[in-house]
Simulated assay, not measured.
Amino acid sequence: MKLVIIEPLGVDEQKLLSLTHDTLGQDIEVIYYDTRTTDTDELIKRGQDADIIAVSNLPLSREVIAGCTNLKMLAVAFTGVDHIALDACRERDITVCNCSGYSNAAVTDLVFGMVVGLYRNLIPCNEVVRQEGTKQGLVGFELEGKKFGIIGTGAIGMRVAKVAAAFGCEVYAYSRTVKNEEGIHYTDLDTLLKTCDIVSLHVPLTPSTTHLINADKLALMQPHALLINTARGPVVDTKALADALCNHQIAGAGIDVFEVEPPVPSDHPLFSAPNVIVTPHIAFATIEALEKRAVIMLDNVKNFLSNTPTNVI
């Protein structure tokens, strides 16, 4: 069997290869590529002899899947799989496994980093103090007592709910699956948007969630409300969000994901909107999380080889 790690996974190469051999043994051939490419021909060249391909968030198109003629498994070192041509995989009975759970803590941390950054005006405070200024006009808000809305209560959404509760927030949720968790008030989407001071998105990208937050939904939110998106960019109509911010329909936003992977064009409408913290799709990216996902990915490969696949999509 041949495993091709088709792009860097954010873990030191020697550490990753050592972990690979410790987990899978010496009988599997491992090829590691330390560069990232989106060139279709190059990706096919890298993966054409692979039985298993490990990939993070690098897009793998139908053409690439078709060119990897020996492929039996895709070990996706990521939670979302919207960058993978899943239909092509299903047609060839290729098993696709993800690494759900590796970034729960990391994403949650960034959610609250953004909320606190916006509530306490950290970016303008940093700027003004360097210019010999004061707190004038920069007095912020506390999280305690705020209504915190979570859209999507999967593993990350549930962790966000627990942290919000620890801050003293009232927690509201909207999700396709209602969970019997004390302290979480489930409601419909419109009621959540009308009610909550903070709205945090934690849904996968599907046809039903594309532009889930659009101009009409933003119009329901309160003028002092914040929107946080660490899920997927197209879940939000970002042009509508930029307009809502510029028109003071809502007070601020924390955005980690866009319609495209960074680099994001410098003329993106959110970049000229007020009171926005933007980050380059980094919510999942901590040293600890990247090591966790390498372990989960390799366990997925090991279990696949043992005919007991785990985390199958």
Rank of each mutant, 00 (worst) to 15 (best):
A161N: 08
V163M: 15
T153L: 09
S208V: 01
V4D: 06
G254C: 08
Q222A: 00
E13W: 08
T279R: 14
P274H: 08
A273M: 01
V115A: 15
L226Q: 02
L16D: 14
V171P: 09
I184V: 10
G154T: 11
N307I: 06
A285N: 12
G183K: 08
V278F: 11
T20Y: 10
K179A: 11
K302G: 06
N229M: 06
R176A: 00
K292S: 12
V96K: 06
V160P: 11
E288G: 01
L71S: 00
D188H: 13
H202C: 04
L305W: 03
C89R: 04
A219I: 03
C68Q: 09
P223E: 04
V128N: 13
S175I: 03
E144K: 15
G113M: 08
L19N: 03
K45E: 14
P223S: 08
R130Q: 12
L220C: 00
L43T: 00
I151Y: 02
N121L: 11
L110V: 09
R46F: 04
K45C: 05
I150Y: 08
R232F: 06
A164H: 09
R232T: 02
H211K: 03
E288S: 08
K146N: 04
Y119K: 11
V276S: 00
L19R: 06
I52D: 11
G149W: 04
A253C: 01
T230A: 15
I65P: 09
V163C: 13
P309L: 07
N303V: 04
V257S: 03
A231P: 05
Y186C: 04
G133M: 02
V111M: 13
T308E: 14
A294C: 02
K292W: 12
E7G: 07
A88D: 00
E291W: 06
C99V: 04
V235E: 09
F78L: 13
N247I: 08
K162V: 07
I53R: 06
T79W: 13
A155G: 14
P309T: 00
S56K: 02
H224D: 07
P265Q: 11
G47Q: 01
R90Y: 14
A285P: 00
P124S: 12
R176Y: 07
H202K: 06
T38G: 14
Q136E: 15
L205C: 02
P8A: 02
Q136G: 14
L205D: 04
G117P: 12
G25F: 04
